[in-house]
């Protein structure tokens, strides 16, 4: 710590040193509550999970203190788990992309309304939050069920019933519906900050509407797109409620497996669950870093 000041003065900076020390003490005092919170609620559980993931599962759901890599080997070799990873990431990706494709034009539309309409429309975007998420997902079950709203309508006009519930499609619909506001809001915020004269400038310089959008508007609203994507992607990949309710037991995502490993399976397998959660975190972190690298490059 003191290495930086060492070559400068050998003798007369002892008073500076005490000052620096006192300063450091104060800084620590200020940081302590935050640090404490982070350590107790974030770092400690993480350490526990890390530890567990290398231990052996016992026959009654207990943990045997014996180092093993089996948990990780299982994760990467058993189809059940590999598929769950691939499926979760895939569902997360599709949900994010579809949300993006809906949210961007929607946010743009809202920004271009008069202030009164704008507030009303934003309010409408937020209204679903007033009802419990579980209740809203149950509502989708009623809509998609075999004798639900959609099938009744289909029947009424003489079309055959469709199996909608308990499919990947149903899970996607539920996820997109639930996550859409999280995509709309950050994109709205960045479009709201966007100076539309820049589009005129681009057009003036010979850019067609599409090129003006790609070269000017999209890069400048990328922070909103990136934030929205992360806000949608992470919770989606970890979902288990929607996939449980709208996918039946047929669409297993990571969250479903995790939940089963920790609570439902007989016996519970905490070490495997821990390994799964850790790998999951790692994959997400890498994905997000990569994503931010590629999307925010233009802005640096």
């Amino acid at each position: 710590m003191a290495t930086e000041s060492a070559p400068l003065g050998q003798a007369p900076n002892s008073s500076l040193d005490t000052l620096a020390r006192r300063e450091r003490g104060r800084l620590f005092g200020l940081l302590f509550p935050g640090l404490f919170w982070l350590i107790v609620f974030f770092a400690l559980p993480l350490v526990v999970i890390l530890l567990y993931s290398f231990l052996t599962p016992g026959p009654t759901g207990n943990v045997i203190w014996k180092f093993t890599l089996d948990n990780y080997i299982t994760l990467f070799t058993k189809d059940l788990y590999v598929n769950a990873y691939v499926r979760s990431l895939w569902i997360g990706l599709v949900t994010t992309v579809v949300c993006l494709l809906i949210a961007y034009p929607l946010a743009l539309y809202i920004v271009q309304r008069s202030p009164r309409w704008r507030n009303l429309l934003l309010f409408l975007v937020l209204i679903p939050f007033w009802t419990n998420f579980l209740v809203r997902t149950y509502a989708w079950m009623i809509i998609l069920a075999n004798n639900g709203v959609i099938n009744s309508l289909l029947q009424a006009v003489g079309l055959p019933r469709q199996t909608l519930l308990n499919t990947t499609g149903a899970v996607l619909v539920g996820l997109i519906y639930g996550e859409l506001p999280f995509m709309v809001l950050p994109i709205y915020a960045s479009i709201d900050r966007f100076d539309f004269t820049l589009l005129e400038a681009a057009s003036d310089l010979g850019a067609s509407r599409a090129r003006a959008f790609l070269r000017v508007m999209l890069p400048l609203t990328m922070p909103g797109v990136a934030a929205g994507s992360v806000l949608v992607f992470i919770p989606t990949v970890g979902q288990f409620v929607v996939s449980d309710l709208l996918g039946g037991a047929k669409v297993d995502m990571l969250g479903n497996l995790l939940q089963r490993l920790f609570t439902r399976s007989n016996p519970p397998n905490w070490p495997l669950g821990s390994a799964m959660a850790l790998v999951f975190m790692l994959v997400l972190t890498v994905a997000i870093i990569f994503y931010f690298r590629t999307t925010t490059e233009e802005d640096r």
């Binding site: 004269t197 681009a202 003036d204 310089l205 010979g206 400048l220």
Partner: peptide, 20 residues
């Protein structure tokens, strides 16, 4: 004729330089 097909250019009051 749309702006991008006119051989006319504009200097905007706010300059409208592309910040990125």
């Amino acid at each position: 004729t749309p702006p991008f097909q006119r051989n006319v250019n504009t200097v905007f009051q706010s300059y409208a330089l592309f910040p990125h």
